[in-house]
Simulated assay, not measured.
Amino acid sequence: MIYVVKPGDTLYILAQRFRTTINLFLMFNPEITNPALIFPGQILNLPPTGHSFRLCPVLRQGDRGPAVSRIQFLLRQQGLYTGAIDGIYGPLTQRALVAWQQSVKEINVTGIVDEETWVSLGFECNERPEIVQYIVRPGSNLFSIAIWFGITVESILQVNPQITNPNLVYAGQIINIPASQ
């Protein structure tokens, strides 16, 4: 769902009105670079409520949000996506997705991310328990891990008090991953 910002709105007011957090608003609206600056007429993606969130949502060109960032990240790992991981499903994301779908014989080439496409990229679409353990892979950082699991870096840090420097995780390190938000 989307929301058109009205005069007097702030992210704090909107987070209260829609019973969510400012961090979730920022996660679903990566184009916001300054949380203190939104303007009337701006279109925001509303974070989903608990019952509407899906780990593997259907995505198509024009969609925005963390699931799009996740698909961009997965396509980048395959060497097909070279753009910014910005959460905006534009033409570059579409081309990379079609290239992936063409390379996998078992799926249809639609340009739409469905559960079959998610799974073909190695993503697990089933709900996870509250906290699972994850072994950090070579070249990973907390940002890429957060995108992979559809969560925020902050939520990873909350369940990993042993991580004192969020810019320093190493291959083989075991960290806790909270359930998706």
Rank of each mutant, 00 (worst) to 15 (best):
I107V: 15
I32T: 03
L55W: 02
R137I: 03
E115C: 03
L24E: 15
G87N: 11
L97M: 09
N34V: 04
G111N: 04
I71E: 03
E116Y: 12
T110A: 05
L74C: 04
G111M: 05
N29F: 01
G87P: 06
N165H: 10
P91K: 12
A96I: 09
N141K: 11
I174M: 13
L97N: 09
A99Q: 13
Q102G: 00
P129G: 01
F53P: 00
N29H: 03
N141M: 01
I156E: 08
T93N: 06
Q181W: 10
R76Q: 15
F53H: 07
F53C: 07
F149E: 01
I71C: 05
V58G: 06
D63Q: 10
I147H: 02
V119D: 04
C125D: 12
G150C: 13
E31M: 07
S180V: 07
V68D: 12
A15P: 10
I151N: 11
F39M: 14
N165A: 10
L26E: 08
S103H: 13
R60A: 10
S180C: 07
I163Y: 12
P40M: 06
I131N: 01
M27F: 09
I135S: 14
F25W: 08
L11I: 03
N176E: 08
S120Y: 02
L24N: 08
P35H: 11
F25K: 09
A15Q: 09
I85F: 07
P129T: 12
I13K: 15
E154P: 10
I163C: 03
V136D: 08
P161I: 06
I163P: 03
A15H: 06
H51I: 14
Q94A: 10
G87V: 11
G79V: 02
P57E: 08
R128C: 06
I38F: 02
I156P: 13
I177N: 11
T33P: 01
F123E: 11
G8P: 06
G90H: 07
M27L: 13
Y12S: 04
S52L: 15
P66H: 09
S140H: 15
E130Y: 00
F73A: 01
T164P: 07
L37I: 14
A96H: 12
N141Y: 01
S103D: 03
N108A: 15
G122V: 10
E115T: 10
N160H: 03
T164W: 01
N141S: 12
D86T: 08
V113L: 07
R76W: 12
D86C: 00
N160A: 14
R60M: 12
G122W: 14
N167L: 14
I131C: 00
M27E: 15
G65F: 01
H51W: 08
D114F: 00
R70D: 02
S144H: 06
N167F: 02
E124G: 13
W118H: 03
V159C: 08
V58S: 12
I135K: 15
Q102V: 01
L24S: 11
R64C: 10
V98K: 09
W148M: 02
L11P: 06
M27W: 00
V119S: 13
A84E: 14
L59I: 03
I131G: 05
A179Y: 02
I151T: 12
T110K: 12
V5R: 09
F73G: 07
L26C: 03
E106Y: 08
T20A: 00
E116G: 08
F123H: 15
Q162S: 14
Y81A: 04
A146D: 00
F73M: 03
I88P: 08
V58N: 14
V136C: 01
L26K: 08
I38D: 05
